[in-house]
Design a protein around this nucleic acid. Structure first.
Lengths: 206, 206
DNA sequence: AGTTGTGAAGACTTTCACAGCT
DNA sequence: AGCTGTGAAAGTCTTCACAACT
């Protein structure tokens, strides 16, 4: 506690992915992995990998490289991944929202979807999901009562900004924005933009 | 055209989003917008906005700021957005793939989905989409015949790497990766990662 | 012998401050 | 008067080179 680790954003994002890679390698039976091999598998230089790891104050080297399991667990611990369960909701239960509601990948993570919201009563009553669905009128109270910290926003673009402000007002820590809308919310709530069109445009302007 | 515009990645990503913001402002009837107002709406500083715009060699200032339409069209032109139609395919027609197949947002973009692929004949025959569906055995030939340049990857994590390599071998320019897999493909093919879990973890480690 | 860990250099990005334009 | 455009400074991130470790 108390040691002020200042990890830069690029480093944090690489480490998050590195954990996943280490997980894959571990399952494939590799007990050690060198920074050179991580370079080969990710495209990040071995310098960068070593700097990233070392910036966490982790030391688990051997002449064969890092010990897969140790490194993975250490990064998880330092970044607070994989321990505490974090509650999420899906806002907007159209096709995309419904697809995410059925997504099995959350099971392997610490994120748990505990509520879904839609303006249409028809949707909330028809859709079958492994968590309760509510109309958006009840959004604020459900979020506060359950202690939800993250939202996945899959509403139509036209209502995205309004919903984002309502969510931020509930004190959410973050919003995953699947819409193309440019969201502006108070700084206490972070936004990650996952619009397909954005992603394709990034690829095409490369 | 010869003028070697070297635009940095952060600048490019902001400009892509700026185009969308300008589009929204234009529709809201704003004819001009200052860098200070863009700062207010995006969180990027006005310095950065001006530097980004100026790095394209664009000049469309007035004492009231940039002219919304002119700026939008100029960025579009310089970044090669919004002119030529770019062909895409969806690989993996589970719930997420199907949701993207039905997504209307592509209509406003220059990206056009012209094919879908799945290993299961059952899926390709059952699912209704506004473009033809094929089994993955035909993937290489369809991509080459139609001239598809981008793929949206929504297969199960276990087959993601293999599919990515097959897609890269077709000479695709880019892959939008919705899986949590860490993909490694030749440098000629770019990858944008849009995993929900990744996004949530970025938010939670902030 | 082969690896990590890290000070120092280098490259890149953002911020500042203000000249110059309309 | 109020904005943009940009050289220069500051700040951040990556790469290099090599000492230290196993």
């Amino acid at each position: 506690m108390g040691v002020e680790l200042q990890i830069s954003k690029p480093t944090r994002e690489r480490l998050i992915r590195l954990v996943r890679l280490l997980d894959q390698l571990e399952k494939a039976g590799k007990t050690t992995v060198s920074s050179a091999e991580i370079q080969q598998r990710t495209g990040w230089t071995s310098f960068t990998v070593r700097r990233d790891v070392s910036s966490l104050g982790i030391h688990c080297s051997s002449p064969a490289g890092y010990k897969t399991t140790v490194l993975k667990d250490e990064i998880r611990r330092k970044l607070d991944l994989g321990i505490e369960e974090k509650l999420c909701c899906i806002v907007g239960l159209g096709k995309l929202g419904a697809a995410l509601a059925a997504y099995g990948g959350f099971a392997n993570s610490t994120f748990k979807i505990v509520a879904g919201f839609d303006t249409s009563v028809n949707r909330t009553e028809t859709l079958i999901a492994p968590f309760p669905l509510y109309t958006t009128t009840r959004m604020e109270s459900v979020i506060k009562n359950l202690g939800i910290e993250y939202a996945i926003l899959t509403v139509p673009e036209a209502s995205a900004q309004e919903m984002a402000l309502r969510l931020a007002a509930c004190g959410l820590r973050g919003i995953v924005n699947y819409t193309t809308a440019i969201l502006r919310v108070p700084e206490t709530t972070a936004v990650e933009n996952l619009s397909v069109i954005d992603a394709l445009q990034k690829l095409s302007t490369r």
